[in-house]
Design a protein around this nucleic acid. Structure first.
Lengths: 109, 109
DNA sequence: TCCTTTGTACGACGGTCTTCGTAGTTTGAC
DNA sequence: GTCAAACTACGAAGACCGTCGTACAAAGGA
């Protein structure tokens, strides 16, 4: 009966090093790139080249670093970028990283 | 007699993941923050809270990721940010990270 | 109620990262 | 030629990371 909850760092607890580390993995960059263009998505909506448990792991790293927010909705877990918090803390960072990711992906197919 | 040289990745070899990983360490962020405000510096000009060999290691990580360029000058090794290359590849990334670093440092003393 | 869908927990494995000390090299100054 | 300064190379220790499979839990529909 307990509604399942997930720990998220408070905005004041988000550390730049942790955010950059969370973004320094190709799989997690792919997730962030996808979320940037899709708003809210379930974990399984993205086609990642790793197993289910590895996917869970990467989403948790992003959540614990403060990059994404996750909520349960039925059997699914919806994820979305914490744009407001990140933009307030580190203006422009998320956008420049996403643009850099898109640029690199376009350059190296 | 061979002038000591150091391997640097070509601009086209610089990967976003590697750059973000290089920037995701507190010591290396401190180095980048310092270089951003000082232009070219020797390794020992920055007061890092780690040993000399660890310092060498962190500078190498930054160099191999393509974040800094290093050249020998006498007994010293001078380091500087690869601003042109990074700005061309990932516009705004370096500046936003440095600004975010300054902001966080000012907020958490 | 049973089954499917969706995601979790746990433990494991191999690899990488950060850190260090010690010993060595290169350079320029005396 | 000797010496100090600046940095490197090497190896080691311990922590951490990415990956997986297996077994499990929660929610919703038939």
């Amino acid at each position: 009966m307990t509604p399942r909850t997930l720990d998220h760092p408070d905005r004041s607890e988000i550390r730049l090093e942790d955010v950059l580390h969370a973004l320094s993995d190709p799989v997690r960059l792919q997730v962030v790139g996808y979320l940037a263009g899709s708003g809210e998505s379930s974990c399984s909506a993205i086609d990642l080249a790793v197993s289910k448990s590895t996917t869970t792991h990467h989403f948790r790293v992003l959540r614990e670093a403060g990059v994404i927010r996750q909520v349960y909705r039925g059997t699914a877990k919806m994820s979305s970028l914490r744009r407001e918090d990140l933009d307030a803390l580190f203006p422009g960072l998320l956008d420049t990283v996403i643009r850099a990711y898109d640029t690199q992906r376009a350059a190296t197919p």
